[in-house]
Amino acid sequence: MTIPTRRESRREQHKKGSSGAKVTLRNTLIAYAFMLPFLILLVVYHTWPVFFGTYLAFTEYNVITPPKWVGVDNFRELAQDEQFWSGLRNSLKYILVVPVIQGLSIAVAMLVNRPMKGIGFFRTAYYVPVVTSFAVVGLIWTWMYQQEGPVNFVLQALGLMDEPKSLLNNPVTALYAVMFVTLWKGIGYYMVLYLAGLQTIAPELEEAAVIDGATRLQVFWNITLPGLRPTILVCSLLSTISAIKVFEEIYVMTSGGPAGSTYTALFYTFSRAFVDFKFGQAAAAGLVIAIISIFFGLINFRITRGGKADA
């Protein structure tokens, strides 16, 4: 004989619901209490500078006197400033690094993803440039690019150069020389991200494709690459934004020279702010760079189909 369970009254159900709601509210408050220090830092060092910088873009400001509202005058000056357009062209040219660095990073990630002896050493070796200070990297490569440096020796040995010349002092080659350093330093960083992406792809899919007679190229194109699409979106976004706002490499290696051939948009912003003390015009240039970065970000989303993996 079964004993019927007592049916809860509405008052008891209400008490249970109230206690559950109190527990949920308490847990939520505790979670926000733990996040509060980070949220404060986020507002102080990220959110507030974004809004204040946007406001400064429409003002005349030199730190000494209070900001003076000038409307769109700063943007008019930018439109007539050939130095800004030259820097912007070089920044957009720098985007050529993005597809090269992504392709090489995927290739290296697939190479070090294989189980082989000493693979840990190779992974570390590829990542060492990432954790090396760019001040050190810039000085080393500046020496290597000199007229008597090893880069000239190798190019002459391969028959690619007739006589030694400093690549950083040549307006034709300076920007591409700096771009190569960015490429060399960044491969290890994106390799780690792609390596993580490769390990999320089920090996059974590739094994089944091989059993069905697919070649390695077909497996890569139809299984590996679609499976890496979320990682490709993240890496392409990061590298595109980094290319548009390139500054550290230029500052350390060329300071915008020779003859302005490596002068970029962000270097222009730095010069206007901390050399000429025209913070309003610098903020306007920074706002233009941010809009361009958003535009190329949308292009990346379109190309990678929003980062949705097929595998």
Rank of each mutant, 00 (worst) to 15 (best):
Y45K: 02
A311Q: 10
T124K: 10
T231F: 07
I40M: 03
P150H: 03
G87E: 06
L56E: 13
A177T: 08
G280C: 07
Y190S: 11
G213H: 00
R114Y: 06
Y127E: 09
M253P: 03
A202M: 14
V151T: 06
H14E: 15
L195M: 02
I119G: 12
P49S: 12
A290Q: 09
Y263V: 09
A196P: 01
G257W: 07
T231H: 01
K117P: 02
T264P: 04
A196I: 04
P164Q: 04
G256L: 00
L225D: 01
M179A: 13
T269Y: 01
K68H: 13
L25N: 09
T54N: 11
I299W: 00
R216G: 14
Y45Q: 06
L139C: 07
G149F: 02
T215M: 06
A79Y: 03
K165I: 13
N170I: 02
I119N: 06
D212K: 07
A259G: 14
I201Q: 00
M1F: 10
H46T: 15
I299S: 01
M144G: 05
E206Q: 05
V178C: 07
I64W: 01
G138Q: 08
Q147I: 11
V154I: 14
F274G: 13
Y145R: 01
T132S: 02
V275E: 15
P258H: 05
L158A: 14
V44L: 01
L193I: 13
N113T: 08
N74E: 08
S86M: 12
R305M: 00
L175Y: 06
T262P: 03
W143V: 12
T269K: 02
G120M: 13
S19Y: 11
L25A: 15
W141Y: 11
E82T: 11
P150E: 13
Y94W: 11
L238C: 08
G186K: 01
T5K: 10
L287P: 00
F270S: 14
G297K: 02
I40W: 02
L158W: 09
W143F: 11
P129R: 12
V151S: 00
R7C: 09
H14V: 14
E249F: 00
K278N: 15
A157S: 15
V72A: 12
K93R: 11
E249P: 09
W85H: 03
Q146I: 11
L139T: 15
G103D: 01
P49V: 10
K117L: 14
T254K: 03
R302Q: 13
G260K: 02
G87N: 05
G20H: 07
N300Y: 03
L158I: 14
T200L: 10
T224C: 08
A208D: 09
L92C: 02
T47E: 07
V252I: 15
L41W: 05
V50I: 13
L29R: 09
L29E: 08
